[in-house]
Design a protein around this nucleic acid. Structure first.
Length: 389
DNA sequence: TCTGGGGTCCTAGGACCC
DNA sequence: TCTGGGGTCCTAGGACCC
């Protein structure tokens, strides 16, 4: 049952989506081709997986969260969200807000398995897919005939075969598609043009724009810009002054929902890390060093399993006052060997030698690529290029 | 009853080379 | 002797996303 959620638009037609600007004799060759992009987002993914396993919990507020004193909420069911519980909130606060909620520790193995089920099925239908995390993906359905019909069928099939409910937003860009699905979920199915999005979301907080996080929203608010409409009306010059050339232009473009970023599958990972937050801060360096050993061991095991080696070793230290420090060193050779990595980790830690209690430690390996051996040839021999004139 | 873990990208400054 | 300007590589911090 492809229910249209969110008040707008009550019905979108494939004909309207397919309509393209007349490109007859196109003098305006610069106009980018019109695209149709969908953003697909599984509703309350972790909580939904838990509900499948325990159907007796259906309709009850469910919170997936760790158990430690510093745990945060990973996902809350929509019943729990009614009480103000939301992702990334400290679990203790969630408990205070909704004491009768059922709290379940996360089971990432199960979520990964269900995620594979979901996206394998989507991939069978749609070629151009960019998965983002475990429960989201962008689809480029420009070349799909009757894209909305196909997407509706996909949503129905997904529900039938996997038990998951997917929200879908459609638009001419990833930005519009994402904003639509996020605004109308759960069980969203809606499409908006760029112009519609500009109108529809003009009164909404700047935070709904992907790319505007808490810090940027705060800086904007200090300038009197709290809504997307405020941002639309603001001089780009002023934005550029405050945020720099690039970010200023980016913010202005976002407010008018201009976005030409392509839907493209991400390449191989660029870094891997392993980090942990302690239930209580640790001041003892010997104890901290043994944690580093455990983290490096786990990281190296992962890299060995995946047959990846890195040249850049880094540690991360978060102090009790929340200051976060990173220290990194590049090696001559790529490695995933604990006997090579660990002395570097220890040296970085001992040179930094935190003077306050530590709440988090992390170890990271990066620079996986073979140093570019097939780099493009220089335009001219270096000798000629160098001191020209 | 403060703030997880795993990532990506951007910026800025310094070293070094030509 | 002093001058100018790029490149690249590297480190550190920060914002953002799921």
């Amino acid at each position: 049952m492809g229910v249209v959620r969110g008040a707008y638009p009550s019905r979108v037609s494939d004909a309207a989506i397919a309509a393209r600007p007349a490109d007859a004799g196109s003098q305006e060759a610069a106009r980018p081709p019109r695209r149709v992009v969908a953003h697909c987002d599984v509703d309350a993914f972790y909580a939904s997986v838990e509900l499948l396993r325990r159907p007796e919990l259906a309709g009850k507020p469910l919170v997936v969260a760790g158990t430690g004193p510093r745990a945060v909420v990973t996902t809350a069911s929509y019943e729990a969200r009614k009480y103000g519980v939301d992702s990334a909130m400290p679990a203790a606060r969630a408990r205070a807000l909704c004491p009768h909620a059922i709290f379940v520790p996360p089971d990432f193995t199960a979520y990964r398995a269900k995620s594979k089920e979901v996206w394998d099925l989507v991939r069978e239908r749609i070629e151009a897919i960019q998965q983002v995390g475990i429960d989201e993906a962008y689809l480029d359905v420009t070349d799909v005939e009757k894209p909305l019909r196909v997407l509706r069928a996909l949503v129905a099939e997904l529900r039938e075969q996997t038990g998951m409910t997917m929200s879908v937003g459609v638009g001419p860009s990833r930005l519009v598609a994402k904003t639509v699905s996020a605004s109308f979920k759960p069980a969203a199915f809606a499409a908006l043009s760029r112009e519609d999005a500009c109108e529809r979301f003009a009164g909404a907080s700047t935070r709904i724009l992907q790319g505007v996080g808490p810090k940027t929203a705060e800086r904007l608010a200090a300038m009197g810009i709290t809504t997307v409409g405020d941002l639309q009306r603001h001089e780009q010059e002023v934005l550029v002054q405050r945020f720099g050339e690039r970010m200023g232009a980016y913010l202005k473009a976002r407010s008018w929902f201009y976005d030409d970023s392509p839907v493209q599958a991400g390449g191989p990972a660029k870094s891997r890390s392993n980090e942990t937050t302690f239930p209580q801060d640790i001041a003892d360096h010997a104890e901290l060093e043994s944690v580093l050993h455990r983290l490096a061991e786990g990281l190296c095991a992962t890299l060995q399993r995946r047959e990846i080696k890195g040249r850049n070793v880094a540690i991360k230290v978060r102090l009790d006052d929340w200051t976060t420090v990173t220290r990194a060193r590049s090696l001559a050779e790529r490695t995933n060997d604990l006997a090579t990595v660990m002395p570097v980790v220890l040296d970085l830690f001992r040179v930094y030698a935190p003077e306050r209690p530590v709440r988090l430690l992390g170890v990271r390996l990066a620079a996986f690529e073979e140093p570019a051996q097939d780099a493009p040839a220089p335009l001219a021999p270096p000798g000629q290029l160098s001191l020209g004139l």
